[in-house]
Simulated assay, not measured.
Amino acid sequence: MSFQTGTTSVALATANPWSLVPPLGNLDAYISAVNRMPMLTVEQEQEYARKLKNENDLEAAGKLVLSHLRLVVSVARQYLGYGLPHGDLIQEGNVGLMKAVKRFDPDQGVRLVSYALHWIKAEMHEYILKNWRMVKVATTKAQRKLFFNLRSMKQGFKADAAEGETHRDTLSEGEIASMAEQLNVKREDVVEMEARLSGGDVMLDPGPSDDGEDSYGPIAYLADAKQEPTALIESRQRDRLASDGISTALAELDPRSRRIVEERWLKVNDDGSGGMTLHELAADYGVSAERIRQIESAAMKKMKKALAYYA
Results as ranks from 00 to 15, higher is better:
Asp105Phe: 05
Pro106Val: 08
Pro106Lys: 01
Asp107Arg: 02
Gln108Ile: 12
Gln108Gly: 02
Val110Phe: 13
Val110Lys: 06
Arg111Ile: 02
Val113Glu: 15
Tyr115Lys: 04
Tyr115Thr: 07
Leu117Ala: 07
His118Thr: 13
His118Asn: 07
Trp119His: 15
Trp119Asp: 11
Lys121Ile: 11
Ala122Val: 01
Ala122Gln: 10
Ala122Trp: 03
Glu123Ile: 01
Met124Thr: 01
Met124Lys: 03
His125Gly: 00
Glu126Lys: 13
Glu126Gly: 14
Tyr127His: 11
Lys130Ala: 13
Asn131Cys: 02
Trp132Arg: 10
Met134Tyr: 12
Val137Met: 13
Thr139Ile: 09
Thr139Asn: 07
Thr139Pro: 00
Thr139Gln: 13
Thr140Trp: 03
Lys141Met: 04
Lys141Ile: 08
Ala142Phe: 00
Gln143Met: 02
Lys145Asp: 09
Asn149Gly: 01
Leu150Lys: 05
Leu150Thr: 06
Arg151Thr: 08
Ser152Val: 13
Ser152Pro: 00
Met153Gly: 00
Met153Phe: 02
Gly156Lys: 02
Lys158Ile: 12
Ala159Leu: 12
Ala159Ile: 03
Ala159Arg: 12
Asp160His: 11
Asp160Ser: 15
Ala162Gln: 12
Ala162Trp: 01
Ala162Ile: 06
Glu163Asn: 03
Glu163Pro: 05
Gly164Ser: 09
Glu165Arg: 10
Glu165Val: 13
Glu165Trp: 00
Thr166Asp: 08
His167Arg: 13
Arg168Phe: 09
Asp169Lys: 09
Asp169Pro: 00
Thr170Ile: 10
Thr170Ala: 13
Thr170Val: 14
Thr170His: 01
Leu171Lys: 03
Ser172Leu: 12
Ser172Phe: 06
Glu175Pro: 07
Glu175Gly: 05
Ser178Leu: 10
Ser178Pro: 00
Met179Asp: 00
Met179Phe: 14
Glu181Tyr: 01
Glu181His: 11
Glu181Pro: 00
Leu183Ala: 08
Asn184Trp: 01
Asn184Leu: 11
Lys186Pro: 00
Lys186Thr: 05
Arg187Ile: 15
Arg187Asn: 10
Asp189Val: 03
Asp189Ile: 01
Asp189Thr: 05
Val190Lys: 11
Val191Ser: 07
Met193Ile: 08
Met193Gly: 08
Glu194His: 12
Ala195Ile: 00
Arg196Met: 12
Leu197His: 01
Ser198Val: 04
Ser198Glu: 05
Gly199Asp: 06
Gly200Arg: 04
Gly200Asp: 03
Met203Ser: 15
Met203Tyr: 07
Leu204Gly: 06
Leu204Trp: 14
Asp205Ala: 15
Asp205Arg: 14
Pro206Ile: 06
Gly207His: 05
Gly207Asn: 08
Asp210Lys: 14
Asp211Val: 04
Gly212Val: 02
Glu213Ala: 13
Asp214Pro: 10
Tyr216Phe: 15
Ile219Glu: 12
Tyr221Met: 14
Tyr221His: 12
Ala223Val: 02
Asp224Tyr: 07
Ala225Gly: 05
Lys226Asn: 10
Gln227Ala: 10
Glu228Pro: 02
Thr230Val: 11
